[in-house]
Amino acid sequence: MRRCIIVGKPNVGKTLFLLALAESLRVKNISLLRELPDGKRMAVSYDIREAARHLVDPAPHTTRCLQSVILDLPAGKGRKRVEIIDTTGLSEGVHRDPGVRKSMAQTLAALQSSDLIVHIIDAAAAGRGMDEPPVGEVDQEICNYARLRGGYCIVANKMDIPGADKGLKQLVQTLPPGVRVFPVSALRRRGILEVRTYVGSQL
């Protein structure tokens, strides 16, 4: 099965995006397979309407493991079964919590073996920064890395927040040519379909 990985900085909305993607396919009960940094695996499942309450939080590093869901994406006339993996956010600098560092190493390892990379950037935060590049080093390096691998797109999330359009504009201006960017609001369920179609076509 082909693997699509969701990466980005902490708190950009990776988990909520995964849930929104599942919801767009009318998943009622979401079953997640968790793989902890120490290699332990477990399965959890939630009513899709409840899942965000358990898995999404305003604090960074809510997710500290790989959690994946298997979805049947519409592709052409039929459907394609793919694994979508939510990950621990990659932060700037060296994180002081060894547990978080271990989880980030796990993200990087999973990145190496994935077929498609969906890179989420918080467009509202990008628009807020007065400093020139709208995104920091981690986002730049994710982009540099992922571009070489082929199968890569950026999701500019939180477009519902005022000022995010400015962030999106700055982002698009500074990006190297040829990178697909999808404006999305995971919260308001906007732009999800476009990303879904792209993922389906790439895998």
């Binding site: 060894p98 560092r101 190493a105 730049q140 890395y145």
Partner: peptide
């Protein structure tokens, strides 16, 4: 290196690239 704090995630990505 990422795990033991000698590398930042950015540096690691650069090396992986």
């Amino acid at each position: 290196g990422v795990e033991n704090g000698r590398l930042t995630p950015s540096q690691a990505l650069e090396a992986l690239r």
